Simulated assay, not measured.
Amino acid sequence: MFASSSAALMLLLLGTPATARTCPPPGAMEGRCIELTADQTEEVSEVQLSPGQPTTFHFDSDVRADGVTLEDREHFEVASGSQLLTLEPSERLRGAQPGRLRVCFADGEAPGCASFRLLFHPVMGERRVEVFRHPRTMDSVQAELKKMREENARLRAENEKLRMERDRPDGLKGLLSSGMVGRSGMPSQSLIGSITLRESNTLRPRSVMTFRAPGRVAIESFLQNMDAARAWTLQGAKLVGPKGEVLDATFFPAEPIPPGEERQVWIEVMAPEAQTGGPFTLKLWEADGQRTFVMGNVTFPDFPVVEGR
């Protein structure tokens, strides 16, 4: 049935595989053009066929010999090669419901397969469909999926934390009901007389207070920017324990400290009491990473022993 085009078909089958290409602007090439990317594995492209008329799919990647699945295959004339697949629907498919074609590639990269929804039109069939694939190794896809799962887990944890906080009352009622403040208040202590500082620090602490609540500790400090020309913009914070253990911290506020001025800064760490014995070294770093603030001998108060209720 395809004798008239057999010579051209053999030339195409013997050609070298094409490198990854992109579809040209509409009208710049004959026929239809479809691009496949690794993040479109669930996308199904529609292709229109006409009974009695051949439609040729030209892939820029080799197709597995056993990688073609075609619904109602008995009603098609099929010619296939490493990168070509020609389908000619029989007259029995005139007016039929849409069918499905699935093609899987031989290199093991993503996207591994492509799906097409076949529509049948009496005369308006597409004669040629170019399929350009932008493959990625499965390792890179798995690494990205792992990163996405970790990010989703982090966002779910943050969402659960926000939901729990939303469900608590505000003000003192919220502090008391959450257990963060008990009958004896929140344990706190001043450290301004016992901390150690690096000579290279461009921030000077005017006061340092530490606090403890169930499952968290906090540091309140009034920090003065000693640079007379540049603002100091805090980007990150962490506590480093006596054995090198690192506790990630959050901070507030995020506004820059203007040159020569002083700001109240809060640092908070979510961690069990067993992990916050200290002494710790507090490390703050600036947005551009060039300036840091390091304060040593940071400790947190113990919970008081409350007798009776």
Rank of each mutant, 00 (worst) to 15 (best):
M10S: 12
R100V: 02
M138I: 11
L175Y: 09
T299C: 04
C33I: 08
E268C: 14
E130A: 15
E160R: 15
F57S: 00
E71Q: 01
A114E: 03
E255N: 14
L13R: 14
E273Q: 13
V63P: 00
V47H: 01
D66A: 00
P279T: 08
G81Q: 04
S4E: 04
F303P: 04
D288H: 07
R163C: 04
P17H: 10
G174E: 07
S200V: 00
V78Y: 01
G289C: 03
P242Y: 08
Q189S: 07
G260R: 08
V123A: 04
P98M: 02
G241T: 06
G81C: 05
G112M: 15
F293G: 07
R216H: 12
W285A: 10
E43F: 02
R156M: 13
A213G: 13
V123F: 02
G260E: 05
G81I: 05
E91I: 10
F59A: 03
R309M: 05
R166I: 11
E151W: 15
E150D: 14
E35S: 15
G289E: 01
E261L: 13
V246L: 10
L197P: 00
A38M: 11
G236L: 14
A231K: 12
P98W: 01
L234Y: 12
P169I: 12
P111N: 14
T16A: 14
P24K: 15
E255W: 14
E158W: 15
T276V: 13
Q97E: 07
G244Q: 09
S177H: 08
A110W: 10
L118Y: 01
V103W: 01
P24R: 14
Q275E: 12
P279Y: 05
E262M: 15
F116R: 02
F76E: 00
E77C: 07
L284S: 10
